[in-house]
Design a protein around this nucleic acid. Sequence first.
DNA 1: TCTGGGGTCCTAGGACCC
DNA 2: TCTGGGGTCCTAGGACCC
Length: 349
Amino acid sequence: MEWPRAILHLDMDAFFVNVYLLDHPEDCGVPLAIGGKPGTRGVVASASYEARQHGVHSAMPATQAQRRCPELKFAKADWSRIEACSREVMRRLSEFGPLEPLSVDEAFVDLGGEEAPEEIVPRLRKYISSETKLPASVGLATSKLVAKVASDFDKPEGCTIVSPGNEAEFLAPLPVRRLYGIGPKTGAALAELGIETCSDLVRVDIQALQPAFGNYAVVLQELAQGVDTRPVDPSPWERKQISTEHTFPKDVTEREQLLTALAELCEQVSTELSNSSRTGRTVTLKLRWSDFTTITRQRTLPSEIAAAKDLLRTATTLLDRNWDGQAVRLLGIGVSRFGTKSQTQLGDF
DNA sequence: TCTGGGGTCCTAGGACCC
DNA sequence: TCTGGGGTCCTAGGACCC
């Protein structure tokens, strides 16, 4: 088979859950949710397949998950363990070709150098799983877009190969929401027009899309046909922002309590900045009111800062200008516009 | 029913400068 | 007295991703 381009997408199955199970094998087979606990305003970050059978899925409020599945066991994510497992997965994957990580548990690999990529892929999948003891799914296609949909097609432990020329046919019956880049808003707007599947989207007259989507209509129709020429980009990822935020267990109306929380957030961001030898010029304050409306207010300084007390000074000014005493649900702080010193990036590897 | 935390990218408008 | 266009920097919000 001739592959003009051969791009693999690997997606770890229920990654947080399966990392947890490495250290807690006794919990194998029970419905599990990694993330926030009920009663804490937390959400499920990752649900085991047993939990999914009860309708529990990621991003679901923990309280609601517990209602759906009363025997559900909740556990916190162990970030250092997750990151270590992620590094191991990426290291093994990079043995096969240029690697572009997409998140902690997903990556693209360019298999363009391979004679018969469709034969490599099942072996690659088993190799990653046996080396890391973690289940994974893979997709192989001629583009990133289709490879990503393919890896999700037959989860868990799936291996889906979309041969060259079959991209549009593969996507046709799938809901448009499966496409990377079509989220809740776009999905709902398309549904308004009676468009549910990729084939609906391909066949609709572009004139019908233009009132709602303008120039983006063209992009949408390309997505639905699997048209995507972006290459795998193995260059190291550069962070553009460091931020942290906190949702209070109960909304806060006391200024003192906000300032205490703000000081703590500034400490955390400052520590991260210094760990990566970075300094930044723009400080962003994030506030969410009890009705869930969210505002951000930022200020760019004439010089770069990194110390917690400098962050706190700017953040406090922003808070005082934008908070009138109403109940605060979430408080967040971020720093961006990093300096360009080339040594800045060395801390990442 | 209640909705985390960490990111990226895009758009639109205003200020300012030449 | 009236009024150009382009470029950069900055701010705010929104959609989307895992």
